Simulated scan of single mutants.
Amino acid sequence: MTRSQILKGWELKGLEKFIAPLAALLAFVYLFQWYITGELRSTSDPVFPAKLPPLVMKGGDPHIRALMRTISASESNHQRPYSLLYGGQHVQDLSRHPEICVTIVNGPNQGNCSTAAGRYQIINTTWFRIAPKYHPKPGRFVFWSSYSFDAEYQDAVVYRWLSDSQVWGTDISQLLRQGKVNQVLKLLSPTWTSLGYGIENNSMSSHLPRIYQKMLQEELKSATPAR
């Protein structure tokens, strides 16, 4: 046996020491995932590593809260979503809706511009329509009102909006409790097109029902008082 053959033998033995533990670790990860979620999937699946930041808002229906986090997974998948503008830039001033119109570079609306901002990528006209109805602490001066776009108010306005059955023609929370996640996403897709069913999708759209289930488990766990 030559010297090179001996060295190759040592290298293979060294690799074997790492391969077995690595295989065991991967098997454990997949089995643990199966135990928690009831299904196995690749680590390349966006659901697998999804760690969406919690809402700033405290309390509320865990099903609506999970839906809000699911919407943000598709609309503003970022660890700092509340200050996010369409296109990826951030703003510092959230005392009001930023109203910054960013050019759309692809998709069916290419060439136009979007004022979408915040965790739920709400455009300015939508914010000025829903904020007067759902904002918990509007600023008022004589006949003039202002609506802070701070994180807690983005959450509060969207939570109340989604909870208003008169707006959507149905009780969204009840549909979610019945497991009709796809029906809810379809209902909301004209407002948030990235949810699927609308004029455009993104890489997260098809994974949203499973992301919702993951978010719901986190919200239910957080809502359960510690014993």
Rank of each mutant, 00 (worst) to 15 (best):
G87I: 02
L94D: 05
Q110L: 02
D93K: 04
I104K: 01
L94T: 11
C101E: 04
Q92E: 08
L85E: 10
S95D: 11
Q92P: 12
P98G: 10
I104E: 15
G87Q: 09
I104W: 02
R96Q: 05
Y86D: 09
Q89W: 03
S95V: 09
Q92A: 11
S83H: 15
N106F: 02
T103C: 00
L94E: 04
P98L: 11
H90L: 15
G88R: 08
H90P: 12
T103V: 06
N106Q: 04
S83G: 08
P98Y: 08
Q92C: 14
P108W: 00
R96E: 15
N112W: 15
N112G: 15
H90I: 10
T103Y: 00
C101R: 01
L85K: 07
G88M: 05
R96M: 05
P108Q: 03
P108R: 07
P108H: 04
R96W: 13
E99R: 08
E99F: 02
Q110V: 13
G107Q: 00
D93W: 01
C101S: 06
N109C: 14
S83D: 14
G88S: 14
V105W: 01
G107L: 00
P98H: 13
T103M: 03
P108E: 01
S95W: 06
T103I: 03
L94Y: 01
R96I: 12
G87V: 06
N109H: 15
N109M: 09
L85N: 07
